[in-house]
Amino acid sequence: MEIEGCNFPLDGIRYDVDDQMWVRFDDDGNVTSGLTDVGQHIAGKLLFLRPRKAGEDVKRGKRAAIIESGKYVGPINAPLSGKIIEVNESVLANVQLVNEDPYGSGWIFRIKPSNLDAEKEDLKEGEEAVAALKAKMEMESWDCR
């Protein structure tokens, strides 16, 4: 799905629209997560990523990493509460993977959710995600062009 030039795959992916994070539920019950296409586009060419370490607990909507670019610095918030079980070492070595392939090799961390039943509904999917993403992008005047 494309909105204002930004890519938002819908197959198997849910979105935290406020924090521009995507989440994929993996077969082992954990989730893989990263920054959306519009998120990376707004930040610009990333220069550094400093995530919390594997083993640390995170809370939904609270800082799980800091990203830095030439024109932006700020937190990446956890889309779900839980424990970080893995950080993408490839992204640590080459943070621009997040710019180049945000939903693929640019994934940032995997989380073992601790409050999934209560928090899952906050992550939008399908047509509900499209409507929420469109509204958010219009409100913020975001695009990827």
């Binding site: 800082r63 800091i66 830095e68 610095v73 700020g74 937190p75």
Partner: peptide, 11 residues
Amino acid sequence: LYLAVSAAAMD
């Protein structure tokens, strides 16, 4: 200012 914003982002 970049450092100040970074510090704030780190709570």
